[in-house]
Design a protein around this nucleic acid. Structure first.
Length: 824
RNA sequence: GCGGGUGUGGCGGAAUUGGCAGACGCGCUAGAUUUAGGAUCUAGUGGUUAAUACCGUGGGGGUUCAAGUCCCUUCACCCGCACCA
C-alpha cells in the first residue's frame, strides 16, 4: 500500500478493470428481485455540468447500494440527442448536426466514465440514431391506428426565433421556454397527440403515486385543471348557437351579458353592420397586444359591444354580446356567460361598461344589492331572482338547474380540462421524421412499417431563419404513396423531442430489438422504474408525457404497468454564490477541473454530503477540500494499520469496555447508513455517520494500548467501513478492499447487516432535568431498576441543591432516555 | 390572488416517534510538529456573564412535566400556477 492517497492512479485503474469485467451489465434473472434505477438522460450539449454530477452521483449510490443489498439492478444511461442546439451548431459552424451530436456524446461519455458511475453501457441508447427513431416512428404509427394522432389546422404558438411551433407546455409567461422570445399566434396545419383523452386517468392515477413528491403531483393536477360544471347552449337572436362552459349553472338567472374571445370564429357573424368598424379595430388591437400582456392578471379588462344580443335559454331574456380581452379562445368554448354579481372579472367589466349587476344568490343572513356592491359575491348562499329555484341553497340549485337544462335539451353536465392536446410537429431538421406521406388521391397516410425507418436525408442546407431544412430536400420530399403507388410527398415536420423521451425507459429493457420497440417479456421483468431521479424542471412536461405514453402502451397490451415511475426523487439545483451556475454570471465550476484536482470520489462525496438530495446545494470549494481530507484520513487509517492487521481474521466480537464501545459505534453506523442510504436517501447524514466511525476508529487505536487492542474486531470494523463507503466513493473503497487482501470486488459484496444487541452497552448515561432544564447526568448500569436509579438521582449534589426549600411535585421517567423532576 | 415549500451558530447542515438543540463538515482560536509555509495531530468554538446563572431554533401567544418538533397568529424569502368562466 502506498503511503499517499493517489486518487488519479486508483480511479483510472479501477474504471478500466470494471469496464473489462463487464461488472455492471445486467440480465433478467427470475430468481432475483429486480431494481430499476434511472436518472433522466441528458441532452448531449458536449459537457457535463454540476447538475449532472449531482443527478448521476445520487443514482449511482442508489444503484450500488441496491446491488449490495441483493437486488438485480438495472442502471442504464443514454442520450436525449435530437434537438435544436445541434441545428444551430450546423448553421453557425457548418458541422452536420449528426456529427456534432455524436462528438458531444463521445465526450460526455468519457466524462461520465471518469466519475466511476456503474452504468450498463451495453444498453446505451441515443434517440437520434436510426435504430431508435425507427421505433419512435413505429410507435407514432401505432398511436395513429389507435386514433390518438391527428392533424388539424390550428392557431399555434410560434417562436419566430426558433422558427418552429411550441406545445402549450413550452410557452412560459408568453415566451418561448428555450430562448425567451415572445411567442406569436399563427394558424398552421399541425400534428397532435390526443392526450386529453387520457386527462381523467392522468389525474386520477396521481393518487396511486405515493412515491412521488406532493409538489410534483400538485403541479400536474393544476396543469390538467379538471373542473366540473355544465355546458349551456345560448342562442343569438339570429339563431346562432353559442355554447358556453360554466362551473356555476346556479347563477344562470344572473347573466346580464355574453362575452366572446376576440379571435372567436363567430365574431364576424355576430357583429352588426354599424359596429363592424369598432369591433374590427378592437380585434386588431388585442391581436397586437403581446401574449405576455394579455395573459398578465392585472391587465385592464377591455371590450366592445358587437351589436348583437343573445337569449338566456331559461328566461329568454335578451342580453348584449360583447368581445373582451379577458376571455380566452382555448379554454372552454371561448364564449362566457357573464354574471357580474357572482364573478369578479365579470363584475369589473360590468362596472366599467355600465352593465347591470343582478344578484341571484344572497349570502346567508345578509342582503346585497347589485347597485351598491363593490365586489362580486362568488360564494354559496340562497337563491333569489331565479324563478322556480328561489329560496333553494345555491349548491342544490346548481344540480337542479343542470338537471333542468338537460331535460329541456338546453345543456348538460360537463367536465372541462385545461389540458390541451399535445402539439408535436416541429418545423425542424434534427428530430424524428413523421412517418406519413401526403397523397393527392389517398390523403395523409402512414408509411408501411417495412419501410421504416424514414431516414433523415443528408442533402440539406442549414440557414438562418429559413424554412424547415427538410422542405428543401427533394430526395426526401418526393416519394410514392404507400397505398396507390402514385406520386406523393412526405411530411416534412419532425417530432417534438419530448416524444423521444416519453418511452426511452422502456427501450432500456430491450435496447437492441430490431423488430419492435421492446419485447414485452423484457419490459415485464424490469418495469416499472423503481426509482427515477431528475430535476424538478421536468415536473410537468416530460413526466406527464411519459405517463401518457405508458398508459397508451398499457392499453395496447405492450406493458403490464400503467405508470412508468414508482418513486420519484427531484433533486435540488447546484448553486454558487446563492444563484444558479451560469456562463453569463461567470460562476460555473467545471466538473472536469474538480475531478482533476481532487478526484471523482471526492467530487461525488462532497456533492452527496453538502445537502440532502431534494434541496438546493451551495457549491463550496472549502467543503470539497474537507471531503478530500476525509478520504485521506481514511487512507491513512488503513495505511497505518496495515502491518498490525496483516493476516488477521475478522471477528465481530468484543469483551473489554473499549471493544464494546467500538462495536456499538460500528453497528450503530451500519444501522444509520442502512436506513439513510437505503431508505430515505439522506446521503448527507449517512456520510456524516461514516465520518464519525472513522473518528471513532482513530480514537480506539490511539487510546487503547496496542497489546490491548482487539485486532480481529478492528479488521471486521474496517472491512464493514469499506463496504459502506463503496456506494459513495467506489474507487478508494475498491482499492483499499484489495489492499486488505481480497481479490473479488467490494461492489459485489453483501451490504453489512447490523446486530441490534451490539448497540446495548452495559452502562447508559441518563440526563437529569429539573423543571425541564438539564441539570446533571449520571452513568448507570443498564440492569438497575427504576427505584435504584431514582435513589441515585436524588442523592446527586446538583439535584439536592436545586431542590433545596422546594417541594417535589412529580418525578417523570422516560426509561433509558431521561429523568425529569418537577419541583415547586 | 391561489397552491407548495423554507426559516436552527460566522457558513453548509443534524435532531427519523414531543424527551440532552447545534451531530458531521467548513471556518475560526490556541497548542504540538516544522528552518518557514503547507500538510498532519491535539484541545476549544451558539450568545451574555468574573463565576454561579440566564437567554437561545424568524416574531408573538398557547398546550405540556418537557416544544425546533403539536395548536393559534404573524413576518420574511423561495418555487409553481395565475383573467381557467
Amino acid at each position: 500500500m502506498e503511503e499517499r492517497y493517489n486518487f488519479d492512479t486508483i480511479e483510472t485503474k479501477w474504471q478500466k478493470v470494471w469496464e473489462e469485467n463487464g461488472q455492471y451489465s445486467s440480465h433478467e434473472d427470475a430468481t432475483k428481485e429486480k431494481y430499476y434505477v434511472l436518472e433522466m438522460f441528458p441532452y448531449p450539449s458536449g459537457n457535463l455540468h454540476m447538475g449532472h454530477v449531482r443527478n448521476y452521483s445520487i443514482g449511482d449510490v442508489v444503484a450500488r447500494y441496491k446491488k449490495m443489498a441483493g437486488y438485480n439492478v438495472l442502471h442504464p444511461m443514454g442520450w436525449d440527442s435530437f434537438g435544436l442546439p445541434a441545428e444551430n451548431a450546423a448553421i453557425q459552424r457548418g458541422v452536420h448536426p449528426a456529427k456534432w451530436t455524436l462528438a458531444n456524446i463521445d465526450n460526455m461519455k468519457k466524462q461520465l466514465k471518469s466519475l466511476g458511475l456503474a452504468y450498463d453501457w451495453d444498453r446505451e441508447v441515443a434517440t437520434c440514431l436510426p435504430d431508435y427513431y425507427k421505433e419512435t416512428q413505429r410507435i407514432f404509427i401505432e398511436f395513429y391506428r389507435q386514433g390518438l394522432v391527428y392533424k388539424k389546422k390550428a392557431a399555434v404558438n410560434w417562436c419566430p426565433s426558433c422558427a418552429t411551433v411550441l406545445a402549450n407546455e413550452q410557452v412560459v409567461e408568453g415566451r418561448c421556454e428555450r430562448c425567451e422570445t415572445p411567442v406569436e399566434r399563427k394558424a398552421l396545419s399541425q400534428w397532435f397527440f390526443s392526450i386529453t383523452d387520457y386527462a381523467d386517468r392522468l389525474l386520477d392515477d396521481l393518487d396511486t403515486l405515493s412515491g412521488w413528491p406532493d409538489k410534483v403531483k400538485t403541479m400536474q393536477k393544476n396543469w390538467i385543471g379538471r373542473s366540473e360544471g355544465a355546458e349551456v347552449i345560448f342562442h343569438s337572436e339570429q339563431g346562432i348557437a353559442m355554447p358556453v362552459f360554466t362551473t356555476r349553472p346556479d347563477t344562470l338567472y344572473g347573466v346580464t351579458y355574453m362575452v366572446l374571445a376576440p379571435e372567436h370564429p363567430l365574431v364576424e357573424e355576430l357583429t352588426s353592420e354599424e359596429h363592424k368598424d369598432v369591433v374590427e379595430a378592437f380585434v386588431r388591437q388585442v391581436s397586437l397586444q403581446s401574449t405576455i400582456d394579455r395573459v398578465a392578471a392585472d391587465t385592464e379588462k377591455m371590450g366592445v359591444f358587437t351589436g348583437s344580443y343573445a337569449l338566456n335559454p331559461l328566461t329568454n331574456e335578451r342580453v348584449p354580446i360583447y368581445l373582451a380581452n379577458y376571455v380566452l379562445m382555448d379554454y372552454g368554448t371561448g364564449i362566457v356567460m357573464a354574471v357580474p354579481a357572482h364573478d369578479q372579472r365579470d363584475f369589473e367589466f360590468a362596472r366599467k361598461y355600465d352593465i347591470e349587476v343582478r344578484v341571484v344568490i344572497q349570502p346567508e343572513g345578509e342582503s346585497i344589492d347589485g347597485e351598491t356592491m363593490t365586489e362580486s359575491f362568488p360564494a354559496v348562499g340562497v337563491m333569489v331572482n331565479s324563478g322556480i329555484f328561489d329560496g333553494l341553497p345555491s349548491q342544490e340549485a346548481l344540480s337542479q338547474i343542470t338537471a333542468h337544462l338537460e331535460e329541456q335539451g338546453l345543456g348538460k353536465a360537463m367536465v372541462n380540462f385545461r389540458l390541451r392536446d399535445w402539439l408535436i410537429s416541429r418545423q425542424r431538421y434534427w428530430g424524428c421524421p413523421i412517418p406519413f406521406v401526403n397523397c393527392p388521391k389517398c390523403g395523409t397516410v402512414p408509411v408501411k412499417e417495412e419501410d421504416l425507418p424514414i431516414l433523415l436525408p443528408t442533402d440539406v442546407e442549414f440557414k438562418v431563419g429559413g424554412d424547415s431544412p427538410l422542405a428543401g430536400s427533394e430526395s426526401f420530399r418526393e416519394t410514392v404513396c404507400p397505398i396507390c403507388g402514385g406520386k406523393a410527398t412526405r411530411e416534412i415536420d419532425t417530432m417534438d423531442t419530448f416524444v423521444d423521451s416519453s418511452w426511452y425507459f422502456l427501450r432500456y429493457t430491450d435496447p437492441h430489438n430490431t423488430q419492435k420497440p421492446w419485447d414485452r417479456s423484457k419490459s415485464d421483468y424490469w418495469m416499472n422504474v423503481d426509482q427515477y431521479i431528475g430535476g424538478v424542471e421536468h415536473a410537468i412536461l416530460h413526466l406527464m408525457y411519459a405517463r401518457f405514453f405508458t398508459k397508451v402502451f398499457y392499453d395496447m397490451g405492450w406493458t403490464a404497468v400503467s405508470e412508468p415511475f414508482k418513486n420519484l426523487l427531484t433533486q435540488g439545483m447546484v448553486l454558487k454564490d446563492g444563484t444558479k451556475m451560469s456562463k453569463s454570471k461567470g460562476n460555473v465550476v467545471s466538473p472536469e477541473e474538480i475531478i482533476e484536482k481532487y478526484g471523482a470520489d471526492t467530487a461525488r462525496l462532497f456533492i452527496l454530503f453538502a445537502a440532502p438530495p431534494e434541496r438546493d446545494l451551495e457549491w463550496n470549494e472549502k467543503g470539497v477540500e474537507g471531503c478530500y481530507r476525509f478520504l485521506n484520513r481514511v487512507w491513512r487509517l488503513f495505511y497505518g494499520l496495515q502491518d498490525t492487521l496483516k493476516n488477521r481474521e475478522a471477528h465481530d466480537q468484543a469483551s473489554s469496555l473499549a471493544d464494546k464501545k467500538l462495536r456499538a459505534l460500528l453497528h450503530g453506523t451500519m444501522k444509520k447508513v442502512t436506513s439513510d442510504a437505503g431508505g430515505r436517501f439522506n446521503f448527507n447524514t449517512a456520510i456524516s455517520s461514516l465520518m464519525e466511525l472513522v473518528n471513532g476508529l482513530y480514537h480506539y487505536t490511539e487510546e487503547v494500548a496496542i497489546e490491548e487492542q482487539n485486532h480481529s474486531l478492528l479488521v471486521y470494523a474496517l472491512s464493514q467501513l469499506v463496504c459502506m463507503l463503496a456506494p459513495f466513493t467506489p474507487h478508494i473503497a475498491e482499492e483499499i478492499w484489495h489492499q486488505m487482501g481480497h481479490d473479488t470486488s467490494v461492489h459485489s459484496m453483501s451490504w453489512p447487516e447490523f446486530d441490534e444487541q451490539a448497540l446495548e452497552l452495559d452502562e447508559i448515561e441518563i440526563p437529569i432535568q429539573i423543571n425541564g432544564k438539564l441539570r446533571d447526568k449520571i452513568l448507570v448500569s443498564k440492569d438497575l431498576s427504576e427505584e435504584e436509579i431514582k435513589a441515585l438521582v436524588m442523592s446527586r449534589k446538583h439535584v439536592k441543591e436545586h431542590m433545596e426549600g422546594k417541594q417535589l411535585r412529580k418525578y417523570i421517567v422516560v426509561p433509558g432516555r431521561l429523568v425529569n423532576i418537577v419541583v415547586q
